[in-house]
Design a protein around this nucleic acid. Structure first.
Lengths: 268, 268
DNA sequence: ACTTGTGAATTCGTTCACAGCA
DNA sequence: TGCTGTGAACGAATTCACAAGT
């Protein structure tokens, strides 16, 4: 059934079908006290993207940037970008654009990046080891303050100057070093237990690489990065392509299809 | 059933001038074909999660499972799960539940997992190396068919039985081995070029780990995994906690809050 | 003239609640 | 008595389009 309930909306533009989406994440709070919740959740994820672009621009000495340009570089549409920025109480200058350094500072402040966040990484296996060695963390304000594992062969070794300690030490070490973010890179079977320890140690934000849904008490934020899921979503699209469309010739520019089609990438 | 989608606008104009874009997209516009293909995008990502749970259940010999149980294990609410399954034309049995093995097969079919998808991984640095060694890929039907890098020190080496070849070989090798999915794990500066090569080689699905927005032609699907973004989103939540709300210990079960899943996790 | 900021329209996604069937 | 499947209410996110500054 379609439709037509009461009011008749006005329809004017062509029904453009574009599919946006993102797996979005968690909803931000709400919760009790009700401190008005600005910053719409989906916006938060994009702010991080804008920040990267801004940093690049800053490095290039750009003084101001328009929403159009910034949006293109971030791969989003400009109206969305402006709305996003409006949520953080931004202030660009009409007719001109945004001051790059000021906007950078505002975004950083919103994301809570004005001070570093100590990170504890649990599970120094294949992936965990790579993450520990990945400079990106420390570089962007997330110093790896502790590493844990249960494997006796790993405990005691050092990665990038940080010693691997036994997972049993999580509570003590995390408390001592003021860890605020935990990264779980253990096998699925161990993830929940590790998560429980982190939570007990006061960690309220967790990035989970283990292929499991973690159960956590309210107030703890979990973000999940699941490679298998990503691959399977791509698989879906590969399969989708064979689904229909008798491949009549091949249209190069099939509108409405999948793709990310910005005009130009940021870097390079 | 019978959703009659009344007015079918049929065909839209090409969004010529500006193409906004984003990642993830699905819901295929149906094009002109007949069978409108639903599967709402957001649903696709969750199907992969359900699949993992189903696989576990299958391994435990469970014959049937209710939407309530499956949903709990997957960390979603049961109504959502049922709606998701309805999109893939599922059929559970009222009063009973879903047949585990049948549902597993249906989900796999929908995700296009009935046959393996050859993967090419470009960038065998820190992260790339870990990904290459990560058994999860091959295990779940995504055999790593090729590895590439530009570093002479890496080219020629072997990881898990697969030789690292020079990135210049991407076109030839990908075509030869029927690669359908590309994984970009290079530094940001090289990502776009690598992406272009993959696309030229016919790869239409790309998983991007590089911190850059990739520009691709329509028809190519890009999914992005950005660690910095994940960390920064968590940072936002850490900061949020200090913003206000004296964090007095409060009600445990506040629905709609931050957390992922109260209740119980799948494993363990 | 140009670009931001934003109300309003629209689309997309989630949740409710119940009819329908084993 | 369950539990599924789904219309319909609801809510979140996106896009439009234009008024408001500069």
């Amino acid at each position: 059934m379609t439709v037509d309930r009461g009011t008749r909306p006005t329809r004017r533009a062509v029904p453009s079908t574009r599919t946006p989406g993102e797996q979005l994440a968690t909803a931000v709070p709400g919760e009790v006290g009700d401190t008005a919740r600005p910053v719409p959740a989906a916006t938060v994820a994009r702010l991080a993207v804008y920040l990267r672009v801004l940093t690049t621009l800053l490095g290039e000495g750009r003084g101001v940037v328009s929403s159009e340009e910034l949006a293109a570089a971030a791969g989003v549409n400009s109206a969305k970008l402006r709305k996003d920025l409006s949520h953080i109480g931004s202030s660009g200058v009409r007719g001109v654009g945004y001051d790059v350094s000021r906007l950078t500072a505002e975004v950083e402040a919103t994301l809570g990046l004005t001070r570093p966040h100590a990170v504890a990484l649990v599970g120094v296996g294949n992936l965990g080891h790579a993450l520990a060695g990945y400079g990106g963390f420390a570089q962007r304000g997330f110093p790896v303050a502790a590493l844990f594992d249960v494997d006796p062969a790993l405990v005691g070794t050092e990665i990038d100057g940080v010693e691997v300690e036994h997972a049993a030490e999580i509570p003590r070490v995390c408390a001592e070093r003021g860890v605020t973010i935990g990264v779980v890179a253990t096998p699925a079977a161990a993830a929940q237990e590790v998560c429980d320890h982190l939570v007990a140690a006061g960690v309220r934000s967790i990035l989970n690489f283990a292929p499991t849904v973690l159960a956590v008490p309210a107030g703890v934020e979990v973000r999940k990065v699941d490679l298998a899921v990503e691959m399977q979503v791509l698989s879906f699209h590969v399969a989708r392509r064979h689904g229909s469309v008798p491949a009549a010739g091949h249209a190069p520019a099939t509108p409405g299809t999948t793709a990310t089609t910005p005009r130009e990438a940021v870097t390079r």
